[in-house]
């Protein structure tokens, strides 16, 4: 597969100021401010093939948006090398800009006082899209996202979901090969989130557009992205599919027991980490390779009415990954 993005030992550091609590310190700061350097991104290396959908996952302040900004040329890296569609993004060449788009969930690129149709038309001129192509693309996108009826409504009066869909149309009107989405589903209701996800999946499949998104919603990532890059504290700590997260990172399973008679909690302790118990139920965390012998033993020893064995919830596994600072 041809590479869309190649990043090697990418780094970005910022300088910023701090202030201690109190008026005196404010005065001190007027004269002499403490300058600190923050390493927002530290030596990240990865590559992404054309047509992939990849998610950047990580807690707030992990460096996801900074990475996205470097990939789109908004920020200049302080170290390492990167190549996007064969360009160096920070040179901000016109030919490069015409081939990608970025949508920021929290920042609108539409004119608030005018209907979205006007902003979309402006993008047609900015990206120099032929009229025929423009019409066809617009009709198709409007159809797919089901927003024909609000195309001529002032953007200020649109719901958040409608506005987001308009942002997507404005970003896709020049058929970019590469699409960056920074939290595209933030603040949307569950139904609209699903709609946006389905649209992105369809679009990616149809046009082979490379899509890179950041999100806090696990559902976005699970449904859309075969591959996930987890960033924590500026480092890449995981690169692979979420299923793999279960395979390689997650060494335990959850066993839920339901008893027909009351069972004292301490009797369960030798078999695994007890997460929760009351008289008639218990939840244990048991190492994967011991699941078979232990569950057999439990069935023999306790008055078990029902037993279920589950994977740990994905959110929980991710949280444990967030705490890592070394690659898996």
């Amino acid at each position: 597969m041809e590479e869309a993005i190649k990043v090697e030992q990418l780094a970005k550091s910022f300088t910023y100021y701090t202030k201690e609590v109190g008026v005196m310190n404010s005065l001190k700061n007027l004269i002499n401010r403490k300058t600190l350097t923050k390493q927002a991104v530290k030596d990240i290396t990865f590559s992404i093939s054309k047509g992939e959908i990849v998610a950047f996952l990580g807690p707030n302040g992990a460096g996801k948006t900074t990475t996205l900004k470097m990939l789109s040329g908004i920020l200049h890296p302080t170290g390492g090398s990167l190549s996007v569609l064969g360009f160096k993004p920070y040179e901000r060449k016109k030919e490069f800009k015409k081939r990608f788009a970025i949508v920021m969930g929290q920042k609108s690129q539409l004119w608030p006082d005018l209907p979205a149709a006007e902003s979309i038309l402006l993008n047609r001129y900015i990206y120099q899209v032929e009229e025929q192509t423009y019409k066809r693309t617009l009709d198709e996108l409007v159809e797919l996202l089901d927003v024909k009826h609000v195309l001529n409504v002032q953007v200020r009066r649109l719901s958040l979901g409608e506005r987001m869909k308009m942002e997507l149309i404005a970003a896709l009107i020049h058929k970019p090969e590469l699409l960056f989405l920074d939290e595209p589903t933030i603040g949307l209701d569950v139904v609209t989130q699903k709609r946006v996800r389905e649209f992105l999946a369809h679009y990616n499949e149809h046009y082979k557009t490379t899509i890179i998104l950041t999100s806090h919603y696990m559902k976005d990532v699970e449904d859309l992205c075969k591959r996930t890059l987890i960033i924590n504290d500026g480092r890449l700590v995981f690169d692979g599919s979420l299923n793999q997260v279960h395979g390689t990172v997650n060494q335990t399973k959850i066993v839920k027991l339901k008893f027909s008679q009351s069972v004292e909690a301490f009797r369960l302790e030798p078999y695994g980490a007890v997460r929760q118990t009351d008289e008639f139920t218990a939840t244990l965390e048991i190492a994967k390779e011991l699941i078979n012998p232990i569950s057999r033993e439990l069935l023999g020893l306790f008055p078990i009415e029902d037993i279920t064995i589950e994977e740990r919830p994905i959110e929980e596994v991710i949280v444990s990954l967030y705490n890592r600072t070394q690659p898996v």
Partner: peptide, 10 residues
Amino acid sequence: GALNKYLVQP
């Protein structure tokens, strides 16, 4: 940061 959206456009 609204300047960003202009930076990425041709």
